[in-house]
Amino acid sequence: MEANWDDLRLFLAVAREHSLSGAGKLLRLDPATLGRRMQRLETALQLTLFAKSPQGYALTDAGQSLLVRAEKAERAMRAAVADQPVASDGLSGQVRIGAPDGCANYLLPQVCAAISDQNPDLDLQIVALPRVFNLSRREADMAIAVSAPTAGRLVVQKITDYRLHLAASDAYLAAREHIARVQDLRQHRVVGYIPDMIFDQELDYLSDLGVNRVPLASNSVSVQINWIRQGGGVGIAHDFSLPAVPGVLRILTDQISLTRAFYLIRHADDQRNPRLSHLAQALTAGLRAEVVRLEALA
């Protein structure tokens, strides 16, 4: 008996995530239900596809063989979708976008809302996680990153540069010693990333400033910004985030000014997909315009 595409789609998720819980999150499917589906698939094929253990689901030789066939079927399905023309009345369907939480919180909501206004049949999902997304495992249809990957079958497009500066709340600055030089930061409480949870070297801002201790640390940009807003301390902030937090000011702008970039990353197999290509164009244009608009207000 041959497996149908829906069976293979679920199998691919479990094979790539090595667990029912991880695959269930991607598929929005209960792990118990997913486990029953995998058991049914094994019964139908009369094969043992997974070696199950407390550490997860590892592929057997039969599972590895099915994985090759399933990925071939996946490529065929994506190619079939890619051959369908984009409807003249707009984009439709569901697209999941992965992004670091700074971009996801302060840029993507308004950009995606504008795209949604023009495409009412399009369902957009933003996955905001402080880590690198794995498009090969289909965690998202496209992802935004702060550095360009150099490995994998990926298409990488630079979206735009953005700027960051040291920032603090006006209440914090009024209550503390004046900050005139970078060296003065040693006398102040610093807000930043948890050092061992920095997932991209482009985000390791504070080490370049000689800051070795971070009393208030989080892996989330939004938490850091809120700490700064509440007068918790001084930290590096995206210029585009500052209009959302009145009372937070840039400081030492003549001494500290950082520039980073956002990149749009897509799987190479999606290059021929007109729906995703049209969305990528709209997303890139929208993000570029929004960064310019917000940085002018900072």
Score class of each variant (00 low, 15 high):
Arg266Gln: 09
Asp161Pro: 06
Arg176Thr: 06
Leu26Asn: 13
Asn226Cys: 03
Leu154His: 07
Ala261Ile: 00
Arg186Gln: 03
Phe50Thr: 10
Val221Trp: 06
Leu47Gly: 08
Val132Glu: 11
Leu173Thr: 03
Gln230His: 08
Pro215Gln: 03
Leu264Glu: 05
Ala171Ser: 10
Gly35Phe: 10
Val211Cys: 03
Ala296Phe: 02
Leu166Cys: 01
Met77His: 15
Leu216Val: 10
Ala148Asn: 06
Phe133Leu: 10
Leu164Phe: 00
Gln157Gly: 08
Asp89Asn: 14
Ser218Gln: 09
Ala180Leu: 08
Leu41Lys: 04
Leu29Arg: 15
Leu27Gln: 11
Asp117Gly: 12
Arg260Pro: 02
Ala282Gly: 02
Asp204Glu: 08
Thr259Asn: 07
Gln281Pro: 00
Thr259Ala: 10
Leu203Asn: 06
Gln118Pro: 04
Ile97Leu: 14
Ala23Tyr: 01
Val81Pro: 02
Glu71Met: 08
Asp83Ile: 08
Val81Gln: 15
Leu135Ser: 12
Ser277Leu: 05
Asp239Pro: 03
Ser21Asp: 11
Ala167Tyr: 01
Val190Tyr: 00
Arg288Leu: 06
Ala62Cys: 11
Ser222Glu: 07
Pro243Cys: 06
Leu252Gln: 00
Ala76Met: 11
Phe50Trp: 13
Leu252Glu: 00
Ala143Glu: 09
Pro274Tyr: 01
Arg275Asp: 02
Gln118Arg: 15
Glu290Asn: 07
Arg138His: 14
Ala32Asn: 14
Tyr193Arg: 03
Leu108Gln: 13
Met77Glu: 14
Asp123Thr: 14
Pro109Ala: 08
Ala32Tyr: 15
Arg69Asn: 10
Gln39His: 13
Arg229Val: 01
Pro109Trp: 10
Val14Pro: 03
Leu242Ser: 02
Asp208Asn: 09
Ala145Arg: 12
Tyr162His: 08
Arg37His: 15
Gly152Asn: 06
Leu124Lys: 12
Asn226Lys: 08
Arg75Tyr: 02
Ala82His: 08
Ala79Met: 10
Arg181Ala: 03
Asp141Cys: 09
Ser53Gly: 15
Leu276Glu: 00
Val95Ser: 12
Leu45Arg: 14
Ser116Arg: 13
Leu47Glu: 15
Arg16Glu: 15
Asn212Pro: 01
Glu177Thr: 05
Ala76Glu: 12
Leu124Pro: 06
Glu74Ser: 11
Arg229Asn: 07
His165Glu: 00
Ser116Asp: 05
Asp117Tyr: 04
Ala168His: 01
Pro274Leu: 05
Ala285Tyr: 03
Glu290Lys: 11
Arg163Asn: 04
